[in-house]
């Protein structure tokens, strides 16, 4: 892979970077299915659905859930994009203190409002 991309002029263009980002995201989404599904049958069913295998399946998601997923996913991709050539420490150093204060307070309030129950973190549930 490195040989394919390294020192190539086209590798640094916006189109290539967008395409590469999308390919990485798609690969991670496919890998997540196996990570989360309880067995291969369920994983296969889920993957088939992701590639249009259930065109007449029941609509079990609310519009609010779909919007929420789209917003969170879009936000995460945006953050990754901005931090592609820098890191969080640099971004925090450059931000004015009131922005850091507001972000920190917002996150703390969101944690309080989320009211986590006593479920263990997903990595500890295997």
């Amino acid at each position: 892979m490195r040989g394919l991309f390294e020192h190539k002029a086209w590798a640094g263009t916006l189109a290539t970077r967008l395409l590469a980002g999308f390919a990485t995201y798609a690969a991670v989404c496919v890998a997540w299915v196996f990570f989360r599904a309880s067995d291969f049958t369920i994983a296969a069913r889920m993957l088939s659905g992701m590639f249009g295998g259930h065109p007449h399946g029941d609509a079990i998601l609310t519009t609010r859930e779909m919007l929420q997923i789209a917003l969170v996913t879009g936000g995460m991709i945006l953050v990754h994009w901005f931090l592609r050539d820098t890191n969080i420490e640099t971004a925090v150093t450059r931000a004015p203190p009131w922005i850091v204060t507001a972000a920190w307070a917002f996150m703390a309030c969101a944690i309080i409002l989320t009211q986590g129950n006593s479920n263990a973190f997903i990595y500890f549930q295997f």
């Binding site: 640099t90 925090v92 150093t93 203190p97 850091v100 204060t101 920190w104 307070a105 703390a108 309080i112």
Partner: peptide, 16 residues
């Protein structure tokens, strides 16, 4: 990062 962390912490605690 070089920030006035003490002030930020106090402000965050008060806001929360």
């Amino acid at each position: 990062p070089q920030l006035p962390w003490r002030g930020v912490t106090v402000a965050v605690v008060l806001i929360v």
